[in-house]
């Protein structure tokens, strides 16, 4: 289990990185935290000619909050979402799902941008970004563009990033007043890839849901938004007499929206079942936490 030969490049600037990516195209691979890429190298499942190490690029390591959004540099470590009081406050959904990303040690090294660019359909951060309706910034020698989260994840391990593009930053909508969040996943073991996960963000005003987003992870070839299910919640007082019915209906629709598959660990039917169970759980958690305090479940 040793990597095949490659050329290692550690650019001093984003421009230099983009130059290398532009020159080598799909023969180049960006090395960020390495938590997913290096195992693939060690198993010789990935064989890039050039590895572009972006870990030292200062331009990719910043965090900025303004106007209701948080911009996080691509190489900010996942652990920052757990440890930074500011990020925990501004991004409660991302913070809630972070403890489920791998383990303590891998979160020290794994990056937020890397996790998104990797586009694992079972990834927690891709689900959080889709659920919140965030976006990423992609740069190449031809310029830069913003890619909405919903458009970023094409299918399992495949993002909309072109080979010569570098994901440089992530835009997250920050928690607003009246918003609540819920996240839950079921995995075989703590830290494993989920069999299913559900995230919910909803805004509560005057005793009713005014806006809701429901995201499903690990139950399709990409994170999904269950829009029809979320729509059912709008206008409802989830704490009221009709609340249980709305939550159950939303969860049922979410399960129906899932596109799960069979694998070694669980059947598609089971994953669909989990979506319904977890869906109810996270919708309730989001409703509870929307009453003023930042919240999470899981």
């Amino acid at each position: 289990m040793k990597p095949p030969p490659f050329r290692y490049v550690r650019p001093d600037s984003v421009e230099e990185a983009l130059e290398v990516l532009g020159e080598h195209g799909e023969e180049a691979k960006v090395l960020a935290g390495g938590c997913s890429l290096v195992p693939m190298l060690n198993m010789r499942l990935a064989r890039p000619e050039v590895l572009v190490d972006v870990n030292r690029l200062e331009a990719l390591s910043g965090v900025a909050c303004d106007n209701g959004s948080v911009t996080i540099g691509a190489t900010v470590r996942q652990a920052a979402l757990e440890r930074s009081p500011q990020l925990r406050r501004e991004l409660p959904l991302a913070a809630a799902c972070t403890p489920y990303i791998g383990h303590f040690v891998t979160r020290n090294r794994g990056t937020i941008g890397g996790s998104l660019a990797h586009a694992d359909a079972r990834g927690e951060l891709p689900l959080a970004l889709v659920t919140l309706g965030g976006s990423v910034l992609a740069q190449s020698q031809r310029g830069q563009r913003s890619i909405a989260a919903e458009d970023l994840f094409v299918y399992h391990f495949t993002s909309a990033l072109a080979h010569e593009e570098l994901l440089t930053a992530v835009h997250w909508p920050a928690a607003g007043p009246g918003w609540g969040y819920g996240f839950a996943e079921t995995a075989q073991r703590h830290g494993d890839y989920a069999l299913a996960m559900v995230a919910c963000a909803l805004a509560r005003r005057d005793g009713a849901v005014v806006e809701a987003r429901l995201g499903l992870g690990a139950v399709a070839d990409r994170p999904l938004l269950a829009s029809e299910a979320a729509e059912v919640l709008v206008g409802q007082d989830l704490g009221g007499p009709a609340g249980d019915g709305a939550v159950a209906e939303a969860a049922r629709l979410a399960a129906a929206a899932a596109e799960p598959f069979d694998d070694l660990h669980a059947s598609a039917a089971y994953r669909r079942r989990l979506v319904a169970v977890l869906g109810e759980q996270v919708i309730r958690a989001a409703w509870e936490s929307a009453s003023g305090t930042s919240g999470s479940a899981g």
Binding site: P3, Y8, R10, N42, L51, D53, A79, V105
Partner: peptide
């Protein structure tokens, strides 16, 4: 395991615990 699961190779890099099987030596320059 050399794929980041077993944790036996954990060391500190600039103070943070990391998997040394998931890092290249050249990265520690």
């Amino acid at each position: 395991c050399e794929h980041g699961v077993c944790g036996s190779c954990t060391v500190h890099l600039d103070g943070a615990a990391v998997r040394s099987c998931l890092l290249l030596a050249v990265q520690t320059d």
